[in-house]
C-alpha cells in the first residue's frame, strides 16, 4: 500500500506558473485527475513520477521525496502521454526490455503476464511501428505493469483507444484499485473519470480546485442550484407548494410524471420538503438528485 503526498507543491517555468500551491494525497484505490487541457495535469503527473523537480513544496512517495530517487521506480509504474519512439522493436521486445531494466528474476514470464493483462499477446510479435494508437497505448500500459507496481500513474490513458478497449482498460484500472494499488490517471473527459473513479482531484489553471468524492464535492457547492426529481402521487400539488419556498429556484412538471426542482439551499430544502409533503398530504415516492454528474461539478468549477 503506497501513498503519494504533495505538500504545497508549486512548479513554474520562468514566469509561467504550471502548478500553484497544490496539496493532495493519493491513496490506494483509483483516483481521477481531472482538468481541462493545459490545466497542469501532465506537470502534476511528472512531479509524482519524479520527472520534474517541484519549484516549491515536496512530493513524496511513502514519505520519501521522489525527485532524483531512482529506487522509487520499483514501486511506480508510469504510462506517459508521450508516444513510443521505439518503432523498430516488437511489442514483446519492448515490454521485455522494461522487465529486464527492472531487474526481474523471470523477465520472460513477467512480459507474457503483462501482455496478457492488456490483451496484447497476439500482436506482440509485430513491430511497434505498425501498431495502431490503441495498441501502442496498451503496450505502454503493459510496460508499466510488468514489474507489478504498487503505484500506477497514467497520463491520458484512454486517448485514442477504441470504445471496446476503453471499457477493458477501465475495468482493468478498477480492478487494480480494488487490489489495493494506488492508481492515478488523468483525463479531461468527464465520462471517463466518472466510470472509473469516485475519488477525484480537479485541477484548473494549475490550481487544486476540488478534491474528494465527486458527489460530496457537488453537495459542497451550496451556492449553486442543485437539481432533483421528485416523484409523488400528486405532482401538481407538490409543485405549487414548492414554488412558494425560498430555497427553491425553479419547478417544472415532467411529462412522464415527476417534478423537476432546482434548489439553491440544499440544507433548507432537505428540512422543508418532508414538512410540505405532510402539510399537503402528498406522498413522496422517489427523490433523486439528477445532475450529480461530474459534468456539472466540472463545468461549474471551470466556469467560476
Amino acid at each position: 500500500m503506497s501513498v503519494i503526498t504533495l505538500e504545497t507543491v508549486s512548479r513554474w517555468y520562468g514566469n509561467v506558473v504550471a502548478v500553484n500551491g497544490v496539496s493532495m494525497t493519493v491513496r490506494p484505490g483509483v483516483t481521477g485527475l481531472l482538468g481541462p487541457n493545459g490545466a497542469g495535469k501532465t506537470t502534476l503527473i511528472a512531479l509524482m513520477a519524479g520527472f520534474l523537480a517541484p519549484s516549491a513544496g515536496t512530493v513524496t512517495l511513502d514519505g520519501v521525496p521522489i525527485w532524483r530517487h531512482t529506487d522509487a521506480y520499483r514501486t511506480i509504474g508510469l504510462v506517459p502521454e508521450r508516444e513510443l519512439s521505439f518503432g523498430y522493436l516488437t511489442g514483446r521486445q519492448f515490454v521485455r526490455a522494461n522487465a529486464e531494466l527492472h531487474g526481474l528474476d523471470a523477465p520472460g514470464a513477467a512480459t507474457e503476464r503483462a501482455l496478457s493483462i492488456v490483451d496484447m499477446t497476439e500482436p506482440a510479435a509485430r513491430r511497434i511501428g505498425t501498431y495502431s494508437k490503441g495498441m501502442r497505448q496498451r503496450v505502454k500500459l503493459a510496460s508499466a505493469l510488468v514489474h507489478d507496481p504498487g503505484v500506477l500513474l497514467l497520463d491520458e490513458p484512454f486517448n485514442g483507444v477504441d470504445p471496446r478497449q476503453r471499457l477493458h482498460l477501465m475495468a482493468l484500472l478498477r480492478q487494480m484499485g480494488a487490489e489495493g494499488r494506488t492508481v492515478l490517471f488523468s483525463s479531461h473527459i468527464l465520462e471517463e473519470v466518472e466510470q472509473v473513479a469516485r475519488q477525484i482531484e480537479v485541477v484548473v489553471s494549475g490550481r487544486h480546485a476540488a478534491s474528494g468524492d465527486f458527489g460530496q464535492i457537488r453537495r459542497l457547492m451550496t451556492d449553486r442550484p442543485v437539481q432533483y426529481v421528485v416523484v409523488t402521487n400528486d405532482d401538481r400539488a407538490l409543485a405549487s407548494a414548492l414554488i412558494a419556498e425560498d430555497a427553491v429556484v425553479a419547478v417544472s412538471l415532467r411529462r412522464q410524471g415527476g417534478v423537476d426542482v432546482s434548489v439553491s439551499d440544499f440544507g433548507g430544502f432537505a428540512v422543508r420538503l418532508p414538512r410540505i409533503a405532510r402539510e399537503r398530504g402528498v406522498r413522496i415516492l422517489e427523490l433523486t438528485p439528477t445532475d450529480e454528474s461530474l459534468e456539472s461539478v466540472f463545468s461549474y468549477l471551470v466556469e467560476r
Partner: peptide
C-alpha cells in the same frame, strides 16, 4: 538524441537503474 527529443527516454528512466 531522438529519445531525449521526443521524451520517450522516460521509458528507460522510469526504472530503478542508475542514470
Amino acid at each position: 538524441g531522438p529519445e531525449v527529443d521526443d521524451g520517450s527516454i522516460v521509458y528507460l528512466l522510469a526504472k530503478p537503474v542508475s542514470r
